[in-house]
């Protein structure tokens, strides 16, 4: 564990907290993409299958990972529940039209071609890595459709992007300290994912400088 990894994870937790805070305080999920949340649910549930096989108290790291995995899975399920049941009437269904079945299909095909070992576990893990790299697209697409972005929604995406950026620093760190090289799958997809946020970062920082609400072109 290094400071970049820990910082990245903490930003991830903050982003989830902001998302739930936004829904609970405004009693609305307007501007949020249910499709992105569903994709994250799929990502977490295909990647964290090792929860069934790993002893949480094996080491401090496995304990930490187990807590975080359960947190991500449960908060993701809760968010979907809030959007689909309790605040369903505020959900912007008309604009949230990104076709996620194509993303899922593409991630599945890529996972079948590129994986570390030919096992169900490894292919699902690769699938989750591919899918995570594009999971934010429906959310960005929705914001682009509606134009102006609520502050808290932009903070949410900013934190998620920050988490990915810190993970890249974490990989650079691990590359030099642990000399592990065979990480092309996670590194490649993680970089693509960070690049997807880069465009959003640009407009976010522009809007901060001008002290205005974020507007996407």
């Amino acid at each position: 564990m290094n400071i970049f990894r820990l910082g990245g994870d903490m930003l991830h937790v903050v982003s989830i907290f902001l998302l739930l805070l936004k829904i609970q305080t405004s009693h609305s999920c307007a501007g949020l993409s249910l499709k992105t949340q569903i994709l994250y649910m799929v990502v977490f549930s295909t990647r964290y299958l090792d929860l069934f096989f790993t002893k949480p108290w094996h080491s401090a790291l496995t304990f930490y990972n187990t807590i975080m995995k359960i947190l991500f899975l449960s908060s993701s399920a809760y968010t979907i529940y809030l959007m689909q049941k309790r605040y369903k009437h505020t959900y912007d269904k008309v604009h949230d039209t990104f076709r996620i079945q194509y993303l899922i299909a593409a991630a599945a095909v890529l996972a079948l071609i590129f994986h570390l070992r030919l096992t169900v576990f490894e292919i699902l893990w690769a699938f989750s890595v591919f899918l995570e790299s594009v999971a934010i697209l429906p959310q960005l697409f929705l914001l682009q459709e509606t134009g102006e972005v609520e502050n808290i929604t932009s903070h949410y995406i900013f934190c998620l992007g920050g988490y990915r950026t810190l993970y890249i620093f974490n990989w650079v760190w691990r590359y030099f300290t642990e000399h592990r090289r065979n990480q092309w799958l996670a590194w490649g997809c993680g970089t693509v994912q960070t690049l997807i946020y880069a465009d959003f970062f640009y407009y976010y920082i522009l809007s901060r400088k001008q002290g205005k609400k974020l507007r996407l072109p």
Partner: peptide
């Protein structure tokens, strides 16, 4: 295993 380090991340 040496190549598994991405698996101990989230």
């Amino acid at each position: 295993a040496q190549e598994e380090s991405a698996k101990d991340e989230l």
